[in-house]
Nucleic acid binder design. Structure first.
Lengths: 259, 259
DNA sequence: AGCCGGGCTTCCACTGGGTGGAAACCGGCA
DNA sequence: TGCCGGTTTCCACCCAGTGGAAGCCCGGCT
């Protein structure tokens, strides 16, 4: 931008992204001042940017005056390959899995050092979980997270083990050595599990989903009540689903477009 | 912005939105030149903006060099009240409806002069339809569209009848007078229907969903094969679902946040 | 091999759109 | 009535944004 910039080097584009970044799962509706605070921008600047974004319907203003993500961004987001390709291909198999086990079924990818949940299939009869599509959870405390971390590039894994492992429950693995050993086991047997490591009362099983070249690009998992079916019994169904998803992904072009 | 602008008056923010607007359902992956053409921006400008958006992960670059919507925008989109409120509240009832009728179930809102599909519940056993979550279809040729248009503000309705009604099939209603009469019928009996007006071989039934004040803010509908159950028989189930969604919406705060 | 065309990337002189502190405004509350 | 937090408007300053042009890369055709 130009003018009396307080932080030279910050482009208008980066400021627009900072405004969008002010919104997250726990803050889906913000006042103008909130946005300014959370994005670190001066109030006047925020005001102008937000007004333009509202005009372009990227943001919307709720009845109470607070701002939310607008229709345009919602539409744009649904065009992401995460949604149109990975989710679209996997969904039928996830639903099939759900009707077979009647427990929460998850599809997640690794994004940086977190598990990013792409889809969640659930119903009244399942244990409520804190995961949701678009949500993020730690890699070391979730089933899909362990499956993703176990097959992550060595440098990513090493970097993750160097960072402190946040404790979520009394059962969370916070010792790097123990996590490394567990991930080795995951690679050996081909599936991961958790016992109340993220949420007390819930345990999970997960397997990796590979692309045509064999690289792990996602994971699918089942989360249920600790006292339910022996987790191990769910593995075959998961492996079958993962295989089918991988096969369908292999013969689905990266981006199916009409052009 | 500044410099030798070709189109004075266009702000950087509006250009960023133009870049995002270049993506749509039929163009989910674009080359740099495509984006420049479709957004009407000079190539060099597009190049710079896109690079910044990729750095901020609002866009992503596919293996073939084309650009797609990035993870950040996908995450942001899921925070829209359309998703977190309307869809979240309605989904269980839509699924219930689906298991009862085993035909495509839709949830849509009116956005300008189009029906914007917020959610679609389907399965193998349903007729394939061209609708999809995040997609747009004409108001006058779809079940949910007619339900939305019938209860739209008079000025919106009048404006819509003044515009030419695009013909989609031989059965599409393209005569304003006939559409107006049909919408009057919809208001009288409380539900809308279509007979192969959007797609040959498909017909639909839809009802409005009201908010606490009685204003119509969405519509739900069922689309099935022309030869299936008599559409009329589906009306009671739809009305029940719409009522329940309305009730749940009424006691769900506009934006549930943790703040 | 050599040519060609389309797409991508980089460069840089010019300038008007962006900036943000400050002041006014608004509405709820004590 | 006065206070307070959030919102909106104003405007003098000036540097970030602009985009034509030139060069690069790659793949297809001759």
């Amino acid at each position: 931008m130009a003018g009396r910039t307080g932080t030279p080097g910050a482009s208008v584009t980066s400021r627009v992204l900072a405004v969008l970044g002010a919104f997250d799962a726990t803050h889906p509706a913000l006042t103008l001042s909130d946005i300014a605070r959370r994005s670190g921008l001066p109030l006047a600047t925020t005001h102008r940017l937000v007004a333009e974004l509202v005009a372009g319907r990227a943001l919307a203003r709720a009845a109470d005056g607070r701002y939310t993500i607008g229709v345009r961004l919602w539409e744009a987001g649904l065009l992401s390959p995460l949604h149109t390709r990975l989710r679209e291909v996997a969904l039928p198999y996830l639903q099939e899995l759900y009707t077979a086990v009647r427990e929460n079924v998850h599809l997640a990818v690794r994004d940086g050092d977190e598990a990013l949940y792409v889809e969640k299939v659930t119903g009244h009869r399942s244990v409520p979980t804190i995961s949701r599509a678009g949500g993020r959870l730690p890699l070391h405390a979730t089933g899909v997270g362990k499956a993703l971390l176990a097959y992550a590039p060595p440098e990513v894994l090493a970097a993750h083990l160097r960072r402190p492992l946040r404790r979520c429950t009394a059962y969370t693995i916070t010792e790097p050595g123990r996590l490394a050993r567990e991930l080795a086991t995951v690679r050996e047997r081909g599936w991961a599990r958790t016992h109340e490591e993220m949420t007390l009362g819930s345990c999970s099983v997960a397997v990796p989903v590979r692309d045509a070249t064999g690289a792990v690009l996602a994971a699918i998992g089942v989360v249920g009540h600790s006292l339910g079916t022996t987790p191990r019994q769910l593995v075959p169904a998961l492996l079958t689903a993962a295989d089918r998803i991988a096969a369908r992904l292999a013969d689905t072009p990266p981006v199916a477009d009409t052009a």
